[in-house]
């Protein structure tokens, strides 16, 4: 059936495992996998490198490596998507080691990219809060950053994240909990300072 669909060029009707089996000999089947996962992998790499140039360079490396190793891939409980993310993770980890830096996203790019509010005051406030949040995320260990990216960008379940990170679902759940606690503790002083500023501003406004 899959060969019939492949002959007709209906690759989009095949699931990942059928495509992977075909992709070992048929580049068009790999092209379909590329179309399915390019945006996800690019987004993941972008948030872990912080700029378009490196994101493009590393994304290209991920798919080049996937293409050259797909002949060795066997679905032994590790879905193709998880395999691809592992390649991406290894390539990004090597890049960080080479660069000697740990960065999720350039804050200027990030603020310009994600803020949608038109109100200047609200924009400035959101900008500061989000910058602090991103700085706190950058201070997290690499596995916790990866967990947050997979959960919030890819919308993956704990089981899917576990398959990629090589942990059990329970371990991922626990790590997620500890990550939120750590982030909250890290952000607590900044949140209190912001609250103080707001309170001070309100008092000064009333005195005037």
């Amino acid at each position: 059936m899959k060969n019939f669909l492949a002959r007709r060029g209906n690759y989009d009707e095949l699931d990942d495992s059928a495509l992977v089996a075909l992709a070992k000999e048929d580049k068009q089947a790999f092209g379909e996998l590329y179309s399915r996962y390019l945006k996800k992998i690019y987004s993941y790499v972008y948030h872990r490198t912080g700029n378009t140039h490196d994101a493009e360079d590393l994304t290209a490396k991920v798919f080049m490596r996937a293409l050259s190793h797909i002949g060795n891939y066997e679905d032994r409980g590790l879905p193709f998507q998880a395999w691809l993310y592992r390649i991406a993770h290894n390539i990004v980890a090597n890049w960080h080691r080479d660069q000697g830096r740990r960065k999720i996203i350039a804050l200027d790019d990030y603020v310009a990219h994600s803020l949608k509010s038109d109100a200047p005051d609200r924009l400035a406030e959101e900008s500061e809060e989000q910058a602090q949040l991103m700085e706190a995320v950058q201070r997290l260990p690499e596995d916790r950053q990866q967990l947050l990216l997979l959960k919030f960008i890819e919308g993956m379940s704990n089981a899917q994240i576990g398959a990629i990170m090589g942990r059990t679902e329970g371990a991922v759940k626990s790590l997620y909990h500890r990550t939120l606690l750590a982030l909250r503790d890290d952000l607590q002083p900044a949140a209190e300072a912001a609250a103080q500023r707001r309170l001070g501003g309100a008092v000064a406004g009333r005195q005037r």
Binding site: S35, L38, Y42, S43, L67, L133, L148, I153
Partner: peptide, 24 residues
């Protein structure tokens, strides 16, 4: 805050087309 911070980012169309051509 994390949900709004981690917005998906899409690659440039030109990059996607060129990489596809290189791969295939």
């Amino acid at each position: 805050a994390l949900t709004s911070a981690f917005e998906p980012v899409e690659p440039a169309v030109k990059f996607a087309d060129e990489l596809r051509a290189d791969l295939l």
